[in-house]
Design a protein around this nucleic acid. Sequence first.
DNA 1: TTGCATACATACAGCCTGTATGTTAGTTTG
DNA 2: CAAACTAACATACAGGCTGTATGTATGCAA
Lengths: 216, 216
Amino acid sequence: MQRRKAQPTPVTPRSNRDRTEATRAALLQAARELFVQHGYGDTSTPDICAAAGITRGALYHHFVDKLDLFRQVLQQEAQAVQAAIEAAAPAQRLPQEALLAGSEAYLDAMTVPGRTRLLLIEGPAALGVADSLAVDAANAAASLRAGLLETGLADATVAVDAIAQLLAAAFDRAALQIDAGADAAATRAAMLWLVRQVAAPAAAAQKTPSAVRRRR
Amino acid sequence: MQRRKAQPTPVTPRSNRDRTEATRAALLQAARELFVQHGYGDTSTPDICAAAGITRGALYHHFVDKLDLFRQVLQQEAQAVQAAIEAAAPAQRLPQEALLAGSEAYLDAMTVPGRTRLLLIEGPAALGVADSLAVDAANAAASLRAGLLETGLADATVAVDAIAQLLAAAFDRAALQIDAGADAAATRAAMLWLVRQVAAPAAAAQKTPSAVRRRR
DNA sequence: TTGCATACATACAGCCTGTATGTTAGTTTG
DNA sequence: CAAACTAACATACAGGCTGTATGTATGCAA
C-alpha cells in the first residue's frame, strides 16, 4: 500500500475535519427541516439522527444537547436574514431609501419556507424571549432603529428605541401573515405604509406629500 | 339549574358538581402557574397534579390531554383580557376615544403576571399560530379592527384589516417589552403615538392632542 | 511504531405521556 | 329506599424520549 502524505486534499477516506464538517452540516439540515415541520417540542433526536443518517452518539458529540442544536439552527437562519437586509440596504444610500429597501428585503428574506416558524414562533418559546432576541439581535430591530435614527421620526417626543421595537414587531407579523397565506401584496403595502407613517422625511423630502413639523 | 335543595349546611361530602368544579379550578390554577414559570414544554403533568393536590387520573378524567389543559388555561386568560378591553371601551364612546381607551386597557390587562408569556409566547408555539389566534381571536386584533373602522384610517388606500393586524402585533410587543422590564411609560407612550399616527382623526386633524384627552 | 485524541456507536437509567384498569362515592330509578 | 348506573377519581403499565456512560475504530502526532 502506498502512503500519500501531506496532501492538501487527501483522497483517502476523510480527514477528521471533513468528517466533522459533514456530519454537523447534515445534522443542522435535518434538524432544520424537522423543526420546521413538527416544531421543536415534537421533534425527537432519534428522528433527527435518522434523517441525517447517523446515530445519537454523533449528535451528542457535536452538540451539547437538543437545545444547543436548535440554537445553532436558529443562528444560521438569523444570519441569512441579516445578510439579506444588509445587502439590500447599503449604508451609502439615502437614509429613507435605505430604510424602505431594508424593509422590503426583510419581508423577502422571511419568505424562505420555515423561516417565520423558526425565528418567530419556535425560537421565542424554546429559548425564551431574551435569548431568542439575542440570537437575532443584530436583526431587524437594530437595523430598523438605525434606519429610523438616520431618517428621523415624525415626532421628536417619542423614544426612537421604543418605536423601532414596535415597528419590528409589525414586520414580524407581516412576515407571519404572508407565510400563513394572507394577501402578500396588501400586507406588504400596509407594512411599508406604516413605516412611512412613522419615518419623518426629515431631510429635504422628495416625494412625500408634506413634512410633519410639530415639535415639542 | 333551579334544583337547589335547601339542605342546611351540606354536611354531606360534596356533590359531584362541586367536586368537578373544585378540581378543575385547582388544576387550571396550578397549571397556569407552572406553565408561566417553566413554559409548556418543561412542565410535567405529575408536577401539575402535585401542585393541585390530586393525581394524574383526575387530570386525564377532566381534560383530554396536556394540550387540552393548556388550551383551557389560555382561553381563560384571553377572556379576561377581552373583558377588560370591553369594559374600558364601551360602544357608546366616541370612536377615537374608545380606540385609545381600549388601547390602554389592553396594555393594562397584559400587565397581569404571566399573561404575556402564556398568550404571546407559549400559546403560539404549543397550539400553532392559527389555533392560538383562534383562541383569542375575539381579542385585540378584532377590537382594533373595529376601532379603526369607526375612526377611519389616515389613508384610505391601505387595507384596514392588514393595518389592524400589524398594529395588534405592535401592541403585543409593547406588552412583552413592558413585561420584560422596559420603560413602561415610554413604551406605552410610543404605542399610543403609533395608534394616533395611524388612525385618522376624522374630526380634528393631527394638529393638537387635545381631542384625545379624556374627560368624565 | 507507539500513543493519544477525535469521531463516532451502543447501552442504559430516569422521566414523561397517555391509556387501561380498578375502586369509591354520588345519582337515578322502579 | 335499595338496586343499578355513572361520574370521579387512584393505580399500574407500556412505549418513547433525553442525556450520559461506556466501548470501539480511525486519524494524527511524536
